Amino acid sequence: MSDDVIVHVIDDDLAVRQSLAFLLSSDGFAVRLHEGAGSFLDGVREPEGGCVLTDVRMPEIDGLEFLSRLRERGATIPVIVMTGHADVPLAVEAMKRGAADFIEKPFDDAVLLGAIRAVLARQERSGQVDSRAAEIQDRIAKLSERERQVLDGLIAGKPNKIIAFDLEISPRTVEIYRANVMTKMQAGSLSELVRLALRAGRNP
């Protein structure tokens, strides 16, 4: 791993910061810890490489405000948002504001490490990212009307039960449509599905 590729960890919980620092450094990443979004914004200029791993719920400056301030500065460093299950709508909103990915807690170490590597790989080939939009739009076009409705509900951050209520179908039926959408969109996770849809301009 290149020395200028640093994973910046932002979390107000010291134990979480230390645990993530151990995990990431053990996997070969250079790590820098920040106790809050404010300390990152005050102390870090735009890095040449690397990414940010941040909690979505933080005192003073939360994950959404942090993303907004980053983009106001013109910063392009990718941001991965960590979120509890109940905060998935917030994480979806974060992706609409420019987050590169989100990870639901509690997460498997391998899932987190894989997400970080994927984000860094996309950063390296950033010039090729937009070329995939047409391909993703083609996948969306192949969804049925009901599948697109379920997709729009997921992008909006709605849980299955709410999507079922809105569409007047059972939660189990939503699960079936959701599985079909994941397969047709070639998405391995909800965060990847949302990222693909937003990249293609899907914004209900």
Rank of each mutant, 00 (worst) to 15 (best):
2 S>E: 14
3 D>L: 14
7 V>P: 03
7 V>Y: 08
9 V>K: 02
9 V>W: 08
9 V>T: 05
11 D>K: 07
12 D>R: 04
13 D>P: 00
17 R>A: 04
18 Q>M: 10
19 S>M: 09
22 F>C: 00
24 L>G: 05
25 S>K: 13
27 D>T: 00
32 R>G: 02
33 L>K: 01
35 E>N: 06
41 L>Y: 11
44 V>M: 11
47 P>Y: 04
48 E>R: 12
52 V>W: 11
52 V>Q: 06
52 V>I: 15
61 I>G: 07
64 L>A: 08
78 P>C: 07
80 I>Y: 04
85 H>F: 13
87 D>M: 01
90 L>Q: 08
94 A>S: 06
94 A>C: 02
94 A>K: 02
94 A>H: 04
95 M>S: 09
97 R>P: 01
101 D>R: 07
106 P>H: 02
112 L>I: 00
114 G>D: 08
119 V>K: 00
119 V>N: 00
121 A>T: 12
123 Q>H: 11
123 Q>A: 15
130 D>T: 00
132 R>M: 14
139 R>N: 00
139 R>S: 05
144 S>N: 09
145 E>I: 12
145 E>L: 09
151 L>S: 05
157 G>F: 12
158 K>V: 01
160 N>C: 09
162 I>G: 01
163 I>T: 10
164 A>V: 10
170 S>A: 13
173 T>C: 09
175 E>C: 09
178 R>E: 14
178 R>H: 13
179 A>G: 14
180 N>T: 09
184 K>V: 06
184 K>W: 08
186 Q>G: 08
188 G>F: 13
191 S>D: 09
197 A>Q: 02
